[in-house]
Design a protein around this nucleic acid. Sequence first.
RNA 1: GGUGAGGUUCCCGAGUGGCCAAAGGGAUCAGACUGUAAAUCUGACGCGCGAGCUUCGGUGGUUCGAAUCCACCCCUCACCA
Length: 433
Amino acid sequence: MTVENALLKDLQGRGLVAQMTGEDELEGHLSEGSRTLYCGFDPTADSLHIGSLVPLLALKRFQQAGHKPLLLVGGATGLIGDPSFKAEERKLNTPDIVNNWVEKIKTQVGRFVDFDCGEHSAEVVNNLDWTQNLDVLTFLRDVGKHFAVNQMIHKESVKQRIEREGEGISFTEFTYMILQSYDYQVLNKSHNCSLQIGGSDQWGNITGGIELTRRMNRQHVFGLTLPLITKADGTKFGKTEAGTVWLDPERTSPYAFYQFWINSADADVYNFLRYFTFLSVEEIEGVQRQDAEAQGRPQAQGILAKEVTRLVHGEEGLQAAERITQALFSGDTSALSEGDYQQLSLDGLPSSNLDVVNLADIPLTTLLSEAGLAPSGKQVKDALQRKAVIVNGDAYGMEDNMRAGEVFSSSQARFDRYFLVKLGKKKHHLFVL
RNA sequence: GGUGAGGUUCCCGAGUGGCCAAAGGGAUCAGACUGUAAAUCUGACGCGCGAGCUUCGGUGGUUCGAAUCCACCCCUCACCA
């Protein structure tokens, strides 16, 4: 039986399918009607980062195709820690911290799917609900009995922890797989859930769940994994000099988020369009063709930044990000009006108040590193020596280091109170008198 | 509990009494070239404008001088019980 399924075809066309169980069967299963699927998100911080974006958007793709997504927040599994492909054992977080994170992630995750669209409305579930009152003996007898340690040991995901010299794995983390498998079995029973998706690192855990569901519920269920996002230059995806790119606007501003995407390399950007946007594969190919024909700067990065920022931060967040970007990168900042300056800090351009009184005593290195333009004064020094510090359009050097009072004298300020400081090509900060 | 191997700056990883703020690589930052791209080249890369200050699991000790030697302790891993 081979049934063409438009959703699966699209996912495959985007390169979004890493592995799946029984392709033909799954195609048939999805084509026959509305199905319920789930994906888990463990709370390892108070926000998800862009690594979770691929599965979140995948759930949305399924929902758009008429299926019902369940977003599982790992209130229980987050207490244990997933060992899959992790090089080392992680330290446990306290229950109230995890609980706090669960609440935040619940609301975050909810923005990506529709909760009010009839029978395929999304639901958020928490695996703590069905595990916290599970007693050990029941768990060991009813669930644990279905797992063969010999098999678990040979899972690729824990291999390096078992085999690698100098590493080990605690029973706690080793048991993670059983917990996640149990989730699938429970959701199959309670919600008739028949598909689990996740990152490709979850393959081992997902197949574990499929087997458990077969044994305990006598149900044939499916699994599908999404690829790990990689960059052409081999560096880790999702990091900038400021660290992880988070989905929470408090942690990564819409402006910084937008900038992350606009800085994508040409070698990655068309793949990212496929992974992270809802533009059709044909549209993306069209963009790529146009970029290849046009001389110079491609349009793909701009489209990517626009689409993803809108998905995550909404139209307002996108507009704020675009306003700042436009003001700072379009060349001449002297054209900005007083209102523009006010808007910039409202939009999330890093800004701070300047204390004029002590200015004479503070070296620029200290002032600018404390403002967040660089992690240490050393880097500011380096930038100064290369004339890479620009204040309101004028470059300053190391010889100006002890002359903050003159650099930031009120007569130099725009509209008597604004200083736009640029360090290097991409880092900006607004000082307000 | 026993035996063995380890714990070095963001990561990997050299260093085994002064020449060590500590090789090399990666990551990161800045400059040149560009397109807020890649590649390449240059510089920075514990902190400090600087004099200088603080590091090599922890605590004590030996020494003019310790990441390096000694003692005790903590932690990780492997094998055995």
